[in-house]
């Protein structure tokens, strides 16, 4: 399969199970993200949000079930995993920038190694993406010289430099000092308004309400409830959702 057919979903998860030994973390997840959609995932700690996200680009190997990305089964051994991954940007809670490389090199290394872009082209794309996250002047800095918020914006720019079709965010603001959260959310907000397909695990209910097209509530490895963020947040149907929201809102 080459270009995704019209109507193919960006991400489609069917009956996904993930066990770590005896520990059953995901217990039958059915779920999808359409192209251009922003889906936010919330739920208590340990409910399997990160695991679900990591199954999408197969950083975690599902125990059973299907994960389709643009119609391609990522769990199939025939799939070119690296190619699929290069089309899925991922942003981690702990940034995971490469500390031994300059900001610019962080953004160009995978462009050159994976997409085989030449140095000049990769540099141009990297600089444009640094501008986009408001860090055009920090290309030559090293990650350790940046604040957490700046590092996370560099991490977003690094993912964007691959020109991915979709972005996965795993609690991108949870490791940040409160005053630095806003800048990162602003970048994500503008990405969403540009039509980027996004799956965002977050505790930022304000962001979910304002930016999300869909909100998914998970607990104990299953999806308890999903719907328009406004509806789920203001009138949760399920008792477990109510209990969770009453704690965090």
């Amino acid at each position: 399969m080459s270009a995704p057919a019209e109507g193919t979903r960006a991400i489609e998860v069917q009956d996904l199970h993930k066990h770590f030994g005896d520990h059953k973390v995901l217990n039958g997840i059915d779920f999808h993200v359409d192209a251009g959609e922003v889906v936010c995932v919330i739920g208590p700690s340990g409910s399997g949000k990160s695991t679900l996200l990591r199954c999408v680009n197969r950083l975690e190997q599902p125990t059973s079930g299907t994960v389709l990305v643009e119609g391609v089964d990522v769990t199939s051994p025939e799939t070119d995993l690296n190619k699929i991954r290069s089309r899925i940007g991922m942003v981690f809670q702990q940034f995971n920038l490469f500390p031994h490389m300059s900001v610019l090199r962080n953004l160009t290394i995978a462009q050159q190694r994976v997409l085989k872009r030449n140095r000049g082209e990769a540099d141009g794309i990297a600089r444009a993406n640094l501008e986009r996250v408001g860090l055009g002047d920090r290309a030559d800095a090293y990650p350790a010289q940046l604040s957490g918020g700046q590092q996370q914006r560099v991490a977003i720019a690094r993912a964007l430099s691959m020109e991915p079709d979709m972005m996965l965010f795993d609690e991108p603001t949870s490791a940040l000092d409160p005053e630095l959260v806003g800048d990162v959310l602003d970048v994500m907000r503008s990405l969403a308004s540009e039509g980027m397909t996004m799956m965002v695990v977050t505790h930022e209910m304000g962001f979910a309400r304002e930016v999300g097209d869909k909100l998914v509530f998970m607990d104990e490895g299953i999806i308890i409830e999903e719907g328009a963020p406004r509806d789920v947040l203001s009138s949760p149907q399920h008792q477990r959702t109510q209990a969770f929201l009453s704690k965090v809102l």
Partner: peptide, 9 residues
């Protein structure tokens, strides 16, 4: 994980 998520072998 970061390198893998970028598609690096």
């Amino acid at each position: 994980e970061a390198a893998h998520s970028l598609g690096m072998s």
